[in-house]
């Protein structure tokens, strides 16, 4: 195996962790509540802008921008839940596409109106630099995002499977009526889920902004891959999204290197359809 290929695989794994990070918030609301959020990419975009504003205008570093983005997007998540999602859940599944697509356009172009169409990038001095380990180069900002992605996904997994709150949320997602009979308030749990998803999404945005450009339409660029990641891994499985993210990242990197970057998406999509052919519930979803 050539040395460059090792480097390519490492960069693919880091990219995959970022995809998992990007998808983590989506897994929660989509996997747990069966609500598809077409505005997810735009939530991430707003998290990125939060980081840009705090970094460039207010002079804060990642320690300020990450919590700020988490709080801001969590608030946005809860607001979206109470003002919109709660109501469209009463309609058919299509209403979710309709409502969240409208929300996506609204958020994207509200950002456009406020920040302008320009591309923004953060100075790479704050989490810049890179280090070499056994001849393989790791880049600071991507490492931070990748590790952040792993940490958030695992944290979400632990919350959902090991805590009382997680059990309550799962109960609501399985059967809200039964959950209500057991004294759990479904709406409250769902609002909590949106807050958690928002926080994870905000953190994702703030971390991705450290090495990616920020523009009003950036969410669109990353959203499709997030959708694919979540369904590839299987709805309802946070760990599935992580594994799927890593697989997609490596497959993209390696195929871009060996076959050609134009075809990397083609290969990921073919792989995705194949996985669904053999496992219609995704890698780790419940049948």
């Amino acid at each position: 195996m050539s040395f460059t290929l090792v480097q390519v695989i490492v960069s693919g794994l880091l990219l995959g962790a970022v995809y998992a990070l990007f998808a983590s918030g989506l897994t929660l609301v989509w996997g747990m509540m069966n609500v598809v959020n077409f505005a997810h990419g735009d939530f991430v975009m707003l998290g990125m802008y939060t980081a840009v504003v705090i970094w460039t205008a207010l002079g804060g570093g990642p320690f300020a921008s990450v919590p700020a983005a988490a709080i801001l997007i969590a608030t946005l998540g809860v607001l979206s839940y109470f003002l919109l999602v709660r109501h469209i859940m009463r309609g058919p599944m299509l209403a979710q596409i309709l409502g969240t697509f409208g929300l996506a356009l609204f958020l994207r172009y509200a950002a456009f109106w406020y920040f302008g169409a320009d591309f923004k990038t953060l100075p790479d001095t704050l989490v810049g630099g890179s280090f070499t380990l056994g001849g393989v180069r790791f880049e600071g900002a991507r490492m931070l995002a990748g590790v952040g992605g792993l940490a958030i996904t695992l944290l979400l997994h632990v919350i959902l499977t090991r805590t009382a709150m997680g059990s309550r949320m799962l109960a609501v997602s399985e059967d809200p009526v039964a959950a209500q009979l057991m004294g759990i308030r479904p709406q409250r749990m769902q609002a909590v889920a949106w807050a958690m998803a928002g926080a994870a999404t905000g953190i994702a945005g703030a971390l991705i902004a450290t090495f990616f450009y920020t523009s009003p339409t950036v969410g669109e660029t990353l959203a499709i891959i997030a959708f694919v990641t979540v369904s590839f891994g299987g709805f309802g499985s946070v760990l599935g999204a992580l594994v799927a993210g890593l697989i997609i990242g490596v497959v993209e990197s390696v195929s871009a290197y060996l076959i050609g970057p134009v075809y990397k998406d083609v290969i990921v999509y073919v792989l995705f359809v194949l996985v669904l052919w053999f496992r219609p519930q995704g890698l780790m979803g419940k049948a």
């Binding site: 390519v8 960069s11 990219l15 990353l222 993209e252 990197s253 871009a256 290197y257 970057p261 134009v262």
Partner: peptide, 20 residues
């Protein structure tokens, strides 16, 4: 000659190809 899809999420493999 390297063709890539616009709005890539990552270009590291291409740069590594070039470096090689």
């Amino acid at each position: 000659k390297i063709a890539y899809s616009a709005n890539s999420s990552d270009v590291q493999p291409q740069v590594l190809q070039l470096k090689e």
